[in-house]
């Protein structure tokens, strides 16, 4: 792989130097960290057995997460279409393309939780901030995939429709839509799965859903309830993944 010995050695030295530098520059409270192992043991013992007795709280959290994911996927699917069209190089003029691409790149680099916390500041605690976060990341994701699919579609089919005298709108319906629809639906279903996963975490900064319940239980040292919530989240993620791959299989 790395042939030259000197290169390998230099890389090794550089790597070690980085390790030393990064470790020493971190501000670590070693005394607190050294208590970690006993703390971990303590927390684990307090986690068992998981406490499902407050199942109403659990179901409410899960339902809210699911509702957030469903609503956001639907809104994202629709709102992603104009952005995706504008981000396809072969459909729109250069300036439009650059602006749309810019929006997508900008939104993609920001972590959902950052977006969530800003929405929480604007709209207050609760699922509204969460839904908006999920909508934003769904739009970005679906639009990006849509634009890529449009750029990769066969130009001949579109050209043939244009040659009949069809305008932009008819060209979209007859030339573009049939070529990209199945993938678009597949991506949207995949996004539903991703939204279910994300809906469980945006709550950690107060944006609603089961994550909010989890975060609250942690701050109250309610570790047995936390474990119950974690198990439910894992189950939810599993069901989401299973459903998504089943539905995408059906589409083909």
């Amino acid at each position: 792989m790395i042939e030259a010995t000197w290169l390998r050695h230099t890389l090794l030295v550089l790597g070690l130097a980085y390790l030393v530098w990064s470790m020493s520059s971190l501000e670590v409270d070693w005394e607190r960290v050294s208590k970690g192992l006993p703390r971990a043991g303590d927390i684990i013992t307090r986690m068992f057995p998981p406490d499902f007795s407050r199942w109403e709280l659990l179901t409410r959290g899960v339902t809210e997460s699911l509702e957030m994911a469903l609503a956001a996927t639907f809104a994202g699917m629709i709102l992603a279409v104009p952005l995706g069209l504008c981000a396809a190089r072969n459909l729109v003029p250069m300036p439009v393309y650059l602006v749309a691409r810019g929006i997508i790149v900008f939104m993609r680099t920001l972590h959902e939780v950052i977006v969530a916390i800003i929405f929480v500041k604007i709209f207050g605690f609760g699922p509204l901030a969460g839904v908006l976060t999920l909508i934003v990341s769904s739009i970005t994701f679906i639009a990006k995939m849509l634009a890529e699919d449009i750029e990769n579609m066969s130009p001949g089919q579109v050209e043939a429709i244009r040659a009949t005298g069809a305008g932009f709108a008819k060209m979209l319906v007859y030339g573009v839509t049939p070529q990209i629809l199945p993938r678009y639906l597949g991506v949207s279903i995949y996004r539903l799965d991703a939204n279910i996963r994300q809906s469980t975490i945006v709550g950690i900064v107060g944006a609603g859903g089961i994550g909010q319940t989890l975060s609250a239980s942690f701050s109250r040292y309610d570790y047995d309830f936390s474990l119950a919530i974690l198990l439910v989240i894992i189950a939810l993620v599993f069901i989401g993944e299973f459903f998504s791959s089943w539905a995408r299989g059906k589409l083909r």
């Binding site: 001949g156 089919q157 050209e159 040659a163 009949t164 005298g165 007859y174 049939p178 070529q179």
Partner: peptide
């Protein structure tokens, strides 16, 4: 004007999924 001009292509250019 294009609606009065028919065009036929080497690669047929039918919309495959229609």
């Amino acid at each position: 004007a294009r609606r009065h001009i028919g065009m036929i292509f080497q690669e047929y250019n039918l919309v495959e999924r229609l």
